[in-house]
């Protein structure tokens, strides 16, 4: 199982051998520690619990201190679980660094998207704007009709409209690892990654890599 927790640093571009500029997101990831293995016998499913970012012992709840002690790892700020199909072949206390990844690896990256607050239908669902002229006032960005008339006499469930947008878990599938810097615990991933700079991201081997792609 290949998975790691990191923080988004920001975007830049790097040049490949051909001299092409590749847009990349830099992620500072790991070192992560395996803090627990979930097994079907005990927990009903297979998963690996990883911890990231060392933190002073006094900063974590006392109840968690024992958890880290048992795993033989320093206190960590973030704990996240990664579901796996079978025995992950890892031991509690194992360390995972960016060195576990290679250039060219395909990965899925999960983050929490930037919150956009109460957004209109145009931004939130890609609705079209209404005419700016021809006597239009105040309805340029209005969503338009919400449905039919007396029949059915109500708005369908699931009708798209304005509302809270962003600040949700988003996974981008099939991104490519372009560069790995084990010294500084950095990964350069081609393309954009969800969330603000400094936001937590979960990186794992792409599920598309499994058999029959």
């Amino acid at each position: 199982m290949k998975a790691i927790i990191g923080k988004k640093v920001g975007m830049t571009q790097i040049f490949d051998e051909e001299g092409r500029a590749i847009p990349v997101t830099i992620v500072q990831a790991g070192p992560c520690y395996v803090t627990q293995i979930r097994t079907p016998e005990r927990d009903g499913y297979w998963a690996v619990q990883l911890g990231f970012e060392e933190v002073a012992s006094k900063r974590i709840p006392a109840g968690l201190r024992g958890h880290f002690q048992k795993a033989g790892v320093p206190p960590l700020r973030f704990l996240r679980e990664f579901r796996v199909d079978g025995d992950p072949g890892l031991q509690v206390g194992d360390t995972i660094t960016v060195a576990n990844f290679q250039e060219g690896d395909r990965v899925d990256v999960t983050g929490w998207s930037k919150g956009r607050g109460f957004a209109g239908a145009i931004k939130r669902h890609g609705f079209s704007r209404q005419p700016k002229t021809h006597g239009q006032t105040d309805r340029h960005r209005a969503p338009g009709a919400r449905g039919a008339a007396t029949d059915p006499g109500r708005t369908w469930k699931g009708q798209r409209g304005p509302g809270r947008m962003g600040n949700e878990r988003v996974t981008i599938i099939g991104l490519t690892v372009v560069k790995v810097d084990p010294e500084r615990n950095l990964l350069a991933i081609k393309g954009a990654v969800p969330g603000p700079n400094g936001g937590l991201v979960l990186i794992r081997e792409s599920y598309k890599n499994k058999t029959n792609g």
Binding site: V9, T12, I14, F15, V24, I26, Q28, D181, R184, L186
Partner: peptide, 13 residues
């Protein structure tokens, strides 16, 4: 290390 320093890690000479 701040953001700028980290981004520099992959900078071309």
């Amino acid at each position: 290390m701040n953001k700028a320093e980290l981004l520099k890690a992959f900078e071309a000479p």
